[in-house]
């Protein structure tokens, strides 16, 4: 009898604990549900209709025809290519520079703290403002020195120009994540390796890199999402250039400007699924490389 009472009261305590925990996560959960999950789920049925104007209620079920048209649509495929052409170098270069900066300023002293602030500063600038600043940099400095046309004006260089802006803006953020990862590595590991005669490069490859994989996981996942959702930068610098058109611009134009809401929704849904799968795969790949401290 006594055991049953004890078990009941433990269960009651656990249930109460669960409720309290649920209440704590409720704000974030409500926000996520209201702003992301419910609208996303609501949008799915629209992608199977011929809904044209957002201002009209007229729509008919068309099955998978929007999706079938989409995967054969040359313009959509170009925007997919452009989006990946931006995202891949953007992720790699931003991480490499971010890590380099983190190694440079990881020790806390006045000079390094100032450096961290300077390197992080571009992240606080809006993308549109970054685009304007870099337009001047490319025209007034790059073109003046090299005699070349600004990459923002050339179809075959506009993606590279956008990678420069994206990297400049986000490298400071990556740096902070890497600094947190680097500072979490115990000095003992390096000291032991030094006693064994390991050089700087060896220590970096065999101690630093494996132990900061969680920072890579975080940075790559985030940059992947930011890269694939690229929108405001090409809107600001090359609205008319097909070579700079990204998937989000394609979605935006079809839903809002071209009165093809159902078709645009299909593109949005398809790309969200691609984004989710890619994020999951990349996270899984990095998690496999993570090492417990």
């Amino acid at each position: 009898m006594g055991n049953i009472d004890l078990s009941l009261s433990r269960r009651k305590r656990e249930r109460r604990k669960l409720i309290i925990n649920m209440l704590y996560i409720a704000p974030a959960l409500i926000f996520l549900l209201g702003v992301v999950i419910i609208p996303f789920l609501q949008a799915i049925p629209y992608s199977f209709t011929n809904w044209r104007s957002l201002l009209s209620d007229k729509r008919e079920w068309v099955g998978f025809s929007n999706y079938a048209t989409l995967i054969k649509n040359e313009r959509f495929l170009i925007t997919v290519r452009n989006t990946f052409a931006y995202t891949v170098p953007y992720i790699i270069i931003t991480n490499v520079i971010g890590l380099g900066l983190a190694l440079l300023v990881k020790r806390g002293n006045t000079f390094n703290n100032f450096g961290r602030t300077i390197f992080f500063l571009p992240f606080t600038v809006s993308t549109v403002a970054s685009a304007i600043v870099w337009n001047y940099v490319f025209v007034d400095i790059y073109s003046a020195i090299t005699g070349n046309i600004s990459p923002f004006g050339l179809s075959n260089q506009v993606i590279a120009g956008m990678v420069v802006v994206g990297t400049w803006r986000d490298m400071g953020y990556c740096m902070l994540i890497f600094i947190a990862g680097l500072l979490a590595i115990p000095d003992d590991y390096y000291e032991a390796a030094m006693i064994e005669g390991a050089g700087v490069f060896y220590r970096f490859i065999h101690i630093t890199l494996p132990l900061i994989v969680p920072a890579f996981t975080s940075n790559v996942t985030l940059l992947l999402a930011w890269g694939l959702k690229l929108f405001d930068l090409p809107m600001a610098i090359a609205r008319n250039m097909q070579a700079a058109e990204t998937v989000t611009m394609f979605v935006y134009d079809n839903i809002f400007s071209y009165s093809r809401a159902g078709f645009g929704q299909a593109a949005a849904i398809l790309f969200t699924i691609v984004l989710l799968i890619l994020t999951r795969v990349i996270t899984w790949l990095f998690r496999r490389k993570e090492v417990e401290l």
Partner: peptide
């Protein structure tokens, strides 16, 4: 000018 390709109206 070559920068015409990337210039904004303000520029």
């Amino acid at each position: 000018r070559p920068d015409a390709l990337s210039n904004s109206q303000d520029q």
